[in-house]
């Protein structure tokens, strides 16, 4: 049996957009989707795709990418397929338009994972760059009784277990856990591979499997959020910068040092 890997991937607003393009609709408590800026797959999830493909490079494995959301852009969501993943499953439902609740997302994804027949290894990004919740994969591990390793920068599988180089404040540790396992990964995993032309062609031909909440048999009570979004706003930071000058840049550097001394900071 090939190793059954599922990767969680979320579509997000490109986090690298200029701050001026970032707008909050406070009345409706939502972020305005910027016009003309295509959405992307969450960066850490691309790291997760890369981690799964590195495993697939060295052993027999299938990689299924699973995503939940609304307003999917196929250009964004097919990128993992173009990178080399085998299948794409989308849970799409308008009920999720304003879902910012990790508990609901977790339950939906658990239902989808059960429908897919479970997994040997689930890999996900450490957090999504929109709501920065960093909860869903860990919740899935709990609800499905899988072992759990967070913040991986290298992921390998052998002998029924996963071996992860896991980032800790002092450096990293090597952790082993039995399969089935949930592993979250971080950008330290390295630059995800670029899709090849062949990969892009293959991805074009592949069809995504699309399920709704109904298809998953999730009851309305399970879709009740456990958090309420009460307010959403742009924090105000008005700080006045004192620009230090000089006849040339060297002198500006010297003047900066003098200024910091004057302010008793050094």
């Amino acid at each position: 049996m090939p190793l059954n890997i599922v990767v969680l991937a979320k579509q997000v607003i490109d986090p690298e957009i200029p701050m001026s393009a970032f707008q909050v609709d406070r009345d409706n408590r939502r972020i305005v989707t910027p016009a003309n800026i295509p959405p992307v797959v969450n960066g850490f999830d691309e790291n997760a795709v890369e981690a799964s493909l590195q495993i697939k490079d060295s052993q027999e494995a299938s990689v299924t990418v699973l995503s939940m959301g609304t307003g999917f852009s196929m250009d964004a969501m097919k990128k993992p397929l173009a990178m080399g993943a085998d299948e794409l499953v989308l849970i799409r439902d308008d009920a999720f338009v304003n879902t910012v609740d990790s508990a609901v997302t977790t339950r939906m994804l658990v239902a989808a994972l059960n429908k897919l027949g479970g997994f040997d290894l689930l890999i996900a990004g450490r957090q999504a760059s929109d709501w920065d919740n960093a909860q869903v994969p860990l919740g899935i591990a709990e609800l499905m009784g899988a072992s759990c390793v967070t913040l991986g920068k290298k992921v390998e599988v052998g002998d029924g277990k996963v071996v992860v180089e896991r980032i800790v404040p002092e450096g990293y540790e090597v952790v082993e856990a039995p399969l089935p396992a949930v592993v979250t990964v971080s950008n330290e995993l390295g630059q995800p591979r670029y899709p090849t032309l062949r990969g892009i062609m293959a991805a074009t031909r592949k069809q995504a499997t699309v399920w709704s909440a109904d298809d998953l048999g999730v009851s309305p009570s399970e879709m009740t959020p456990l958090l309420n979004l009460v307010d959403l706003f742009v924090p105000s930071t008005v700080k006045e910068c004192d620009f230090i000058e000089g006849d040339n840049e060297e002198e500006a550097g010297r003047n900066l040092a003098l200024k910091l001394r004057e302010a008793k900071l050094i």
């Binding site: 004192d242 620009f243 550097g253 900066l256 040092a257």
Partner: peptide
Amino acid sequence: KEARYGVVGDWKKVLTAFTET
């Protein structure tokens, strides 16, 4: 926008003089 003090310039020129001072 976050800084209290700033120098607009090429670090290659600013930093050495800053460090020496």
